Simulated assay, not measured.
Amino acid sequence: MFPTFKPLLTRLGTAAALLAAIASPLHAEDRPARELFGGKPLPSVMQPQAYGFYAKGCLAGGVAIPTDGATWQAMRLSRNRRWGHPAMIELIEQFSRDARTKVGWNGLLLGDIAQPRGGPMLNGHASHQIGLDADIWLTPMPDRTLTYQERESIQATSMLQPKKFLTINPNAWSERQARLIMLAASYPQVERIFVNPAIKKKLCDTWTGDRTDLGKVRPIYGHDYHFHIRIKCPPGSANCKGQAAVPAGDGCDKSLAWWFTDEPWAKPSPKKDQKPAKPPRLATLSDLPKACAVVLAGPAPASEQDVTYGGGGSSLAYSAKEPADDGIAAVIAADGAQPSFAVPVPLPRPSLQ
């Protein structure tokens, strides 16, 4: 199920060696963390673990979803973002099969999941850092295998009217997109599904099936040509920080209506004589959980042929995984309070997410 490499603790000898790695020049690196993690082409050879929060953390022992499956194709291959925790990869594989049999969806076109070691990305996302987020296009997979160039250049179809970012385009949207999103929300390990507010409203207005999981579907900026699946912290990931449970109900209330006012989209008005705010600094390695320094410095597979592909077969039941390496546990125990750092996440307003 997992890479057949010796645990990191065995390779480095003792937990003290791992703690020494924390004090190494790499830990004091002033370069943005997104450059450090974005520069790693392969995962760390460690037991799979998600460290930190979806928008502030890293991924140990990541696995890749194969470029092609019978019911999916990965897009934008040059980004090298088809990595994730085995629980996330397995869910995508299962979802793709269920989408074909239960929805009649030919296959999934997969957007970004995570980088090989997670962490901040060079561009495009604040989250997707711990291998538990995935973007799924709302365009169905074609009946042929796309070329590499097509995967780089084909644009997904927006579900919205041109120049009307809160109005559904009936020529693009259909009941199948609705069924696909609601199928994704139905899995018990799925914590949230992010969609454009117009898509959430369309579901609220038209969904006649079981509405039990509709509350998991959350309105957020963007997400008009794809939806974002976020799963819960898997069992055994004690140092993964999940979100609060979604509010009770289907979410088709005043919290949704707020998105159709001017407030969410209005530019902030600076106060008179107020000095311009300084742009937020980019996160460095020290802003992340300390275990991420070990993940970043950890050994890579000997070659791409040694990489594990696919989810493995049991995480859908969310059975416990092998524990993290003891050395990493020592690093976490020595972590202490994390430095304060403002993560640029689009916050739920008011209390939507």
Rank of each mutant, 00 (worst) to 15 (best):
A28P: 13
A28I: 12
A28V: 14
E29D: 15
E29N: 13
E29P: 08
D30K: 15
P32K: 11
P32D: 10
P32R: 12
P32Y: 12
A33G: 01
R34I: 01
R34P: 01
R34F: 05
E35S: 01
E35R: 06
E35F: 02
L36F: 09
F37H: 01
F37K: 03
F37E: 02
F37D: 00
G38I: 08
G38K: 02
G39P: 00
K40H: 14
P41L: 10
P41A: 06
P41D: 06
P43E: 03
P43A: 05
S44C: 09
S44A: 10
V45K: 15
M46S: 07
M46F: 06
M46E: 12
Q47M: 14
Q47R: 15
P48K: 04
P48W: 06
Q49L: 12
Q49W: 12
Q49R: 15
A50C: 00
A50L: 04
A50R: 02
Y51G: 03
Y51Q: 07
G52M: 09
F53M: 14
F53H: 14
Y54S: 12
A55G: 11
A55K: 12
K56Y: 04
C58S: 04
L59N: 05
A60D: 06
A60C: 02
A60K: 08
G61R: 00
G62V: 08
G62E: 01
A64F: 10
A64G: 12
A64D: 10
I65A: 01
I65L: 04
I65K: 05
P66G: 00
P66F: 01
T67P: 10
T67D: 10
D68T: 05
D68E: 13
G69N: 00
G69S: 06
A70P: 14
A70H: 13
